[in-house]
């Protein structure tokens, strides 16, 4: 965490200002509206206050939530933020799972459809992690590839995990890990 704060100092400082703003907003809502009265009229006031406190708390504390893997979380409470500043810029990279037949023709497997249950944003950040941390993630990639073996047909030879890059409107593909299909 300290490393992240040091590496992303401006991002962190902006976060401090955001937290101060949220705190002022919270005080205003409590002081200037009838919210407290409405909360008190419910039988489960304490639980409700605790829930809203956790929502606010995580909004302030849970910075760097897009970094994977996280050591700490209070699931289901997490910071609500998306498409916020990208301190490292937006990498125009992607990934692809490809089944190669004997003539090396690629049949693309749509991993986001096969494992749609995981959720596209979450699946994408996991795949980004596999690419960024390669080669230490090689074993993990092999597990993902092996799970797709059931989708192969007779003349298929290999399953490949590829990194895709877009540069100057040109797409390049790089084979990262491949597994042979066991017949």
């Amino acid at each position: 965490m300290i490393d992240l704060i040091n590496n992303y100092r401006e991002f962190f400082l902006r976060g401090v200002f955001e937290s101060i703003f949220l705190f002022i907003f919270f005080i205003l809502i409590v002081k200037k509206t009838n919210i407290v009265k409405i909360f008190k009229s419910n039988k489960n006031t304490n639980l409700l206050i605790l829930t809203f406190f956790l929502i606010f708390f995580m909004q302030v504390i849970d910075r760097f939530q897009y970094f994977y893997p996280q050591k700490f979380d209070l699931y289901p409470f997490a910071r609500f933020a998306m498409y916020q500043a990208a301190p490292d810029g937006v990498e125009l990279t992607s990934y692809r799972f490809c089944i190669l037949d004997e003539a090396d023709n690629c049949r693309i497997i749509n991993i986001s459809k096969v494992y749609s249950t995981i959720g596209l944003p979450s699946l994408s950040s996991r795949m980004k992690y596999l690419i960024d941390e390669f080669p230490s993630t090689e074993k993990e990639i092999e597990y993902w590839l092996s799970s797709l073996e059931r989708l192969t047909i007779e003349n298929d030879k290999k399953i490949v995990f590829q990194k895709i890059e877009l540069e100057n409107s040109k797409v390049t593909t790089l084979n990262m890990v491949e597994v042979n299909i066991e017949k």
């Binding site: 639980l47 929502i55 897009y66 699931y75 995981i118 699946l123 795949m127």
Partner: peptide, 25 residues
């Protein structure tokens, strides 16, 4: 599900916390 993914996305988190609040109140 999310164990196999990367970060926690918001699609179901919103619905889930919404349901928790409805239930408890």
């Amino acid at each position: 599900k999310k164990g196999f993914g990367g970060h926690l996305d918001h699609r179901i988190l919103t619905l889930y916390i919404f349901t928790i609040i409805v239930t408890m109140s």
